[in-house]
Design a protein around this nucleic acid. Sequence first.
DNA 1: CTCCCAAAAGACATCGATGTCATAATTAAA
DNA 2: TTTAATTATGACATCGATGTCTTTTGGGAG
Lengths: 356, 356
Amino acid sequence: MSTIYDVAKLAGVSPKTVSRVVNGDAPVGKKTREKVEAAIRELKYVPSSAARMMRSNRSGLIGVVTGAISRTAELSDPKGLPDLFILQGIQQVVAERDLTLMIADTAGQIDKVPALLRTFQEHRVEGLIYVADYHKRVAFETATPACPLVLANCYDAHGTPAIVPDDKACEKRLVERLTAHGHRRIAYLTFDPAMDAVPLRIEGYREALEAAGIAYDPALVSTGYPINTEFLHQWLDEALDRILALPEPPTVICCGNDEMAMQLYGLLRTRGIRVPEDISIAGFDNYRAIAETLYPPLSTVELPYAEMGRQAAELLLSLISEEASRPHDPVRVAGRVFWRSSVTDLELESQTSKGG
Amino acid sequence: MSTIYDVAKLAGVSPKTVSRVVNGDAPVGKKTREKVEAAIRELKYVPSSAARMMRSNRSGLIGVVTGAISRTAELSDPKGLPDLFILQGIQQVVAERDLTLMIADTAGQIDKVPALLRTFQEHRVEGLIYVADYHKRVAFETATPACPLVLANCYDAHGTPAIVPDDKACEKRLVERLTAHGHRRIAYLTFDPAMDAVPLRIEGYREALEAAGIAYDPALVSTGYPINTEFLHQWLDEALDRILALPEPPTVICCGNDEMAMQLYGLLRTRGIRVPEDISIAGFDNYRAIAETLYPPLSTVELPYAEMGRQAAELLLSLISEEASRPHDPVRVAGRVFWRSSVTDLELESQTSKGG
DNA sequence: CTCCCAAAAGACATCGATGTCATAATTAAA
DNA sequence: TTTAATTATGACATCGATGTCTTTTGGGAG
């Protein structure tokens, strides 16, 4: 690999002049510049970032710690890949700013994190992002790292700057759309409330009901859908029995995610209940492989993971340049509703029946 | 960030001694070592890889160019993510050897590659891997890079070391299993032969037939399945008509991939044809979200992407250390057959009918 | 108590790029 | 043509770690 000295010698100038040509930070005579540029081409000179960094103390590196890459291997079901989308958003911003991403994969083992962080420190990354695979709380043993840190899709107890999905607002937006279309008996079947997202979404569900002047009916809400087990089908079956047997059964069922909605479609079909004529269904996640493929296509709401990645990167960069101060609370990012034909418009229906 | 000089001063020794403690490359007296280690902890000293690299000329970095991360965003169908699996294999090997991965995403634009390669060169990566999203031929304008390069899931015309999936062997293994189970009329519906993988797999199909003493019948083979378009269903429908109308119809249909097999299941169901009682089905890819979920579960064969990633990384490392010489031909990696119940055992069946 | 030898520690130069300051070349003004 | 004001270039030191060589220290033998 040739150095700035080799170029200088070949061009018959001083190394400093070559540096000036490369960085364009000071005027260089036209003839000199051309000689230098020719020498650079000739020797295929590429400056060493290591040497540059020694003086400038700027590495141009952003470190990301994630399990996204190794985790894909375990995937046997058509789920979304939140962390990958987040990674993609980060990648976009970082590329725009001419920074370089160093990605360290935890290979699923949290205990590998300290070693990865050390490697990042050795390379003097200017900032760090930790990306979690689902919305959760995390706690790192490690003392405060030497550079700004942003958490994405998670948060901690120490107020580390964090970007999290706005589960509450998303579910609220979705349910608002349901009430706007005349639904007033809205069931909600979802996961174990131990997952951070679940109580938040229920809160959003309640707020939307309240905004529409609808009383919250606990009989319409079931939590505890067992993810990834054989009992999933049975649980759903029983929950369905329960809510359909209510004196005032729901006109629409909201599901914890799109996959659950897909299961529900199958269950309803075997019971001869039509979607959306007999009952409407809404999902969560806008996992397009499901939402667009189901018949009828599923109304759902998305968590804007790529956007979260972008915001995490933007926040990190502003922390690095000290443009912004640390936000005390996690930044919540909401996504939009995707309205498809799995939900009936009851307003329209009642008008039609009045008219007809 | 504290330096080796800060540590030396605090410990009251020379920087060189600190270096010896850190690297353990020369004996240091016990008391001195303890003083130094205390100072390192006190100052949270982490050596600078940039400075280290200046002298040693070893960066400990491996660069990967891929579109895997940005491409996930476009995914709307439940397909596999070959490049991500490859990335994961690479990651494994690289982590084992205490090297650091730098991942550059092309964001889908090939023209970004030169800039990414330059960044890698600036960081003096010791080796490069280019990961393609499907088996294809590639051509880079760029002159030979300054460090060893390995292609994964692709190859070029210049004999650059490459790791590719062994499409031929995979299909051959699958069809061998079919013939072993008594199938002799084996249809094959697949994609456009312009895709590199298609003719290779057909070749494997033919070799397996030949090995079983079965004549190749072109009427049983249809290529040109239109991927990702609205005509996909129609194409499959017509192809099915054609092969089922043959004087001697097939007992099993091999599909270009598992997704296509899934479509075929649906089509057969609407025609009242049972799988595997009336006809057997085999897939390709072992995309578990499909193969394990379909009823009956799908017999298929996998392309060992993670293994390819590992082999690519191993090959690269041996090229770097000059242990191995460049292979002149792409290294082909075959995967195993996953035998599930979508294929009937005709041998068993004929025995049973004889017995009964 | 000396002397010698091995072990331990240090001095110094070096890797490549660049900031600082000094000097040479060029142009404009007198 | 000379001088002042630019503009263009170069000399040198520096960033942090470490390879090479030198010096110091300590311990055992004589």
